[in-house]
Each structure stands twice: as C-alpha cells, then as structure tokens.
Design a binder for these strands. Structure first.
Lengths: 363, 363
DNA sequence: CTGAAAGCGCTTACAG
DNA sequence: CTGAAAGCGCTTACAG
C-alpha cells in the first residue's frame, strides 16, 4: 500500500489566504477537474487506499497544491468511518495540580497530532454527559480520560458505552477498561533499591499532602505501598510524612523524619514542585549537604528537577510517555482490538548526582 | 422564534448504552418515522428555526427520547453552516505558568459549552499550521488564541486568514484583530488609588521575574506602567523589584524594597502563587503585621488568595471573565460582525482585610 | 490502474 | 404549520 499523502500544503497557499472562511473553498471536484481525473482517484491518492500510477498521482498532488485544497472535515466524518478526533476528559478536582494536568493534556494532544488526530476537550461539568454526547453524535472516535480517581463516575460509563477509551491512571476497579500509567510501585522499589545499593539503611519518604491519600487518585497509594514494601523486604528503617504545602508543615515534616529516623541518610520525595524546592531550601539553610550527608531522590514528578539546587536524581513521571501510550492504546481499540488491560510503564532512573554512598556512621 | 430544544437526552438513554460506537445509531429518519413527521420537521424542531405545532413538537421530542437520538456531528457540519467547534491555540513558552494556562483553557471550554460549542486543542508545535488546517478544512468556526506574546507569529496569520478569531491578551500590533484582556493598567491604578485613599504614601511593587518583562507577553508591562503612572500622578514614593521564584531572590527583593523605601507601608504583588506565599512567610517570620504595619494587595492573579495567611485583598485576573468574553466575541464574528477591537475588562477590587490605613509615622 | 455512482445524515430553500 | 427534495463533500464498494 502506497503511503498516504501528507503535508502537501506546507508550501504557501496564497489562494487560501484570500478566501477567508466565507470564501468558497476548493473541493475534491475542483481538484479532480484540474487534474483531469475522477474524484475517487483524488480520494484514493489522499488516503493511499489503492495504488495510483505515478504520473496520475503527480497531477493530483500538483492540483491539490495549486488549489490549496483541504478535505472538508465534516464530509470526511460523514462518509468515512473515522472522525479523527479524540475526546479528552480532564476533571479538575480540588487537589488537582493544574500544571501537572496541563502537561498531560498537551502530551496527549501532541501524540494525537502525530497520527493526524485532533483532541476535543471535555469540561469538568460535563464529565459523564460529554462522553455520551461526543460518542453518540459521532464527534469522536475514542476517549482518553485523565486524572482518574479511585472511584470515578466516568469509569462505569466507559464500560457501559463500550467505546474505544483509554484511562490514564488506575481506578480501583479496572475490569473492562484499558488503562495506562507509570508503574508507581516499581518506581518506589527502584528508588529504594538504588539507595539500598549505596548502603543506605534508613530512608525517609516525604509524600504528598495527607488529603491526597485519603481521597482522589490512587497513584499516591501505589507509590507509598511500593515504598513500604521495598523497605520491609530489605529490612531498612523508614518513615513517611505527608506535609501540606506551606513552609511550616514542610519544616515540621522534615523535623519529624529526622527525629523518627535519627540515622536517616536518604530522602525520597514524592511531592509537588514548590514543596520539593522548599525542602531543598530548608536543608541548605540547615547546612545539610547533598549527597554528602543526605542522598535525595525526586520520584514521579512531571516537572523538571534538573534546575533545582542541587539538581536531583529522579524517577520521572513522563506525561509524554503516558500520553503517547494512551493514544496508541486508543487507536488499537478503534482498529478493533478491544481487549481490556492495564499497561504499567516501567520507571527509569535519571542520575544527577544527588545520591551517593551512605555516610559511615560514627560509632 | 421558538427556543431550540436542548437537553432532551438528560434522561437515561438505555438504548444507546447498548449500541456501542459500532452499533447503528438512530438517525433523523428513524425519529421522523417514529413521530410520523418528515425529517425537516425533526430538524426544525431541534433547531427552532421555524414554528412547530405544539402537538407535533411533542411527538418529535418523545421519539427523540425514545430512540436516544443525537444528530450526527459530521452530517451537521457538512449540511449546515456551523461546525460548533472552536479551535484553541495555547503555545507553551518557557516562562508559561502551566496552571494559569490551564485555568484559561478550562474557562474557554466551559464558556463554549454553554452555547453548545466544543473546543479543539491546538498544540504548540502546530501553532500556525494548525490555524490554517482547522479553518480551511472547516473543522472549526473560529479560533481563540491564548497566551499571546508581544510579537506573535500567529497574529499575522490570523489577520491574513481573515476568519473569526479572538485573542486573549494584547499583542504589540492589534490592527485588524479582536482582543480581550483584563485592563491591567486600570488594575494597577485601582490598587494604587485604594492604597492612596488609605493614606499610603510609599508603596512597593513586587513584580514577576525580570525575564518576563524582557520577553513574552505584554501584560506585565501594562501593569508595571500603570503602577508607575498611578504613583507618579499622586506623587507617591514607589519602587519595584522583579525577583526570580526562589526564596533567596524573594528575600533579596523584599530587602531591596524596604531599603529603597524606608517608609514603605504598602506592598502590591503581581507575581506567581508560590512567590506570594513565600513573601507572606517571610513577612510573618520578620514579625511584620498585615495590615497593621504593611498593607498588601495581590494584583491580577488567577489563583485563589482567600486561603493565604492572611487572606489577601485582590484584584483578580478572572479566567472565567476572559474566557466568556472571548467566546462572545468569537460568536459575534461568526455571526458576521467582524469589526476589530480591543476589549479591556474592568478590574474589580475584592476586600479581605489585608489593607488598612497607613500607620502613622513616628516623627 | 481508474471511473461512475450510491450513500453517509443532516440543513434549508422551495412549495403548498 | 408541514413535506418533498436538493445538496453539502466526501468514501468506498462495484465494475471494468
């Protein structure tokens, strides 16, 4: 099958610039006439769904460029089997970090564009209605759901609607769903094993605000449980604090870690950007050197920890990876493979010099 | 003209739940047959574009509900003159605050849904191509451009394409464009006049990071110039600092303000959320009481300053207001009124007790 | 390798 | 107040 014709219009369609939205756009008929072929030939040239003689193909492509032709989206949706649109639902809950959400939204949109799909944004107040609306009006071919909470009303609807959909995140009940997310549990194990290998026997975990664990998404729990499991397996001393975002809480959280773990030589942070920078400021103010006295790892952050002072080793939560995979999984469903499954992306470790051998304890 | 029929499906379309995306959806023909009318009557019932006998209307509505009918989006786009889709361009530049951007994206989407429009998200790497693509393929009826920089490549394209478009923000050259934004200059005047009325004669401005003024959007400049103009008019002592986001810079910035303005009794902040909370923490640590010793106003923030310690008076930058207005202005253009203009939204003052009379100076 | 034609599901003059 | 019908611009069997 010959490749599809893409990017034909990268030139400079003067014609179009002066047509405006009210102006009559060139149609497939105009192209066919100018190229001296039938409209089916034009259509097949564009879709690549049947072979076209080289010379014919050239005439068509030239005509398309000359006219600045773009297929009409509505006509395509109506005549074809695809709308080439994904709907993206991104509810904003009280504890949502807007910046993190935006990263995922952009990652999904960018991944979608790579396969010539567009992304339609569903708003919070339309969480469930919107899903029903865009699919039954055939506006979207599939759905990508962000920021899934443990018990999410959208999940049962996705199951019932029985349409191509991918969830970024892992709800409590994944039955019948296609989900993708970083493997937070393995990420926690990775952090602990890295530190264990360096000889650390006493590790603190500075987590997200307590409320996030009680209610909302489940990735905080998966990370926490992974961490607790990993330290238990290795017989490492550990403690966890869940401070709010203000400086006082953070300071108290650190104090608690240091007093619970007097021999603490390593700190793992699974927390927001401002919390992490605040921690580093407090440590610096106290004259605690990294990694000399304390090894520090930032885990599952979407933001960039390479510009921190000091730059931190991290196990990134890559919005790009999740978004790309979500798009792949959705397309696969659109193409007919509706097997439900949970896809946990393997964590990776990025070294930046904020971890080192555990300091030798004075007896 | 009778109202359009909306929300017919708010019930529970069992039918649809079992159809799936592959299942055959009810069409306008099915509805017409069941209601015993022609398809034009169904169409007009939905659009409200001609009057329908009450009894006919009822039969149609019942049939629609019974079948769980939703008009096919592609067919509507093709047959009608509207796609009911806005394209939203939101480029992410290095200095972009993702959270702020997300607020605007959601505000636009929410406002759009209120008039039954959907929002298609254009990605950064497609800034200009995307505009051309969605309009010439007639995917979108109009464009809303976010986060406009002073010299934005998208602006000349918007002028050339000559399509319904609204810019949120004010680029350097507004010729031929429709723009909407908070009136940052008046916002600055409002802050200063409020403080002046309370007797303050020495006011500091803590602004955004310096780089934001050198490059990027122009609202920081408009606020700064408004502030400087307002204090000049009133013969008030003033100084401005533009700290980076780390604690050291903020501390140095405050020190600079206090030393430049030894009699400073009021502080206006036009800065990010974490910067503002850090400022409050530093002031608290130094035992400076608000508003006893220092009156503080947060200006043009999209985040919520009511939960700060203490809650701050603010002149909000309302994403909702801008988004709603942008949607209105775009629809107006779609409806034929293409008059270019710049719409500056009036600022409003929200009191929360962080400003008070200027303390009387000891002689 | 290519064309003529049916059909996708609506909207909107046109006619009564 | 309502209906029959043209037409929007594509995709895709069907035919050769």
């Amino acid at each position: 099958m010959p490749g599809r014709v893409l990017g034909i219009l990268s030139g400079d369609p003067h014609w179009r610039l002066h047509a405006g939205i009210r102006g009559r756009m060139a149609t497939i008929n105009d192209v066919a006439r100018l190229a001296g072929v039938s409209i089916s030939t034009v259509s097949y040239t564009l879709s690549g769904n049947r072979s076209i003689a080289e010379s014919t193909r050239n005439r068509v492509v030239t005509a398309i460029q000359e006219l600045g032709y773009r297929p009409n989206a509505g006509a395509r949706m109506l005549a074809g089997t695809r709308t080439r649109i994904f709907a993206l639902t991104a509810p904003v809950r009280p504890d949502t970090q807007a910046g993190v959400l935006m990263s995922f939204v952009l990652a999904v949109a960018t991944a979608a564009r790579k396969i010539d799909y567009d992304v339609l944004l569903l708003t919070a107040d339309e969480a469930s209605t919107g899903l029903e609306r865009v699919t039954s009006s055939r506006l979207a071919d599939g759905i990508i759901a962000l920021d899934v909470s443990l018990d999410d009303e959208r999940m049962s609807l996705l199951r019932a609607l029985n349409i191509p959909a991918t969830v970024i995140g892992v709800p409590a009940d994944t039955e019948g769903l296609v989900c993708v997310d970083l493997d937070f549990e393995r990420a926690a194990h990775l952090a602990v094993s890295r530190l264990a290998d360096l000889g650390h026997r006493s590790i603190g975990l500075l987590g997200l605000p307590r409320i996030t664990y009680d209610w909302g998404a489940n990735y905080p729990l998966r990370f926490r449980d992974g961490f607790l499991g990993a330290v238990a397996e290795r017989d490492i001393d550990a403690a966890m604090v869940m401070p709010a975002s203000d400086m006082d809480s953070i300071r108290r959280g650190l104090d608690e870690l240091f007093s619970t773990l007097p021999n603490m030589t390593a700190l793992v942070m699974h927390a927001g950007e401002s919390v992490q920078t605040t921690v580093l400021e407090i440590l610096a103010a106290r004259g605690i050197s990294i990694p000399g006295q304390l090894s520090v790892i930032s885990a599952c952050a979407v933001f960039d920890t390479s510009e921190f002072t000091p730059p931190l080793d991290e196990i990134p939560l890559s919005a790009e990876d999740s978004g790309t995979r979500a798009v792949e999984l959705t397309i696969r469903q659109i193409n007919g493979d509706r097997t439900p499954h949970v896809d946990l992306l393997p964590p990776r470790y990025v070294e930046r010099g904020s971890t080192g051998p555990a300091p030798i304890r004075e007896p």
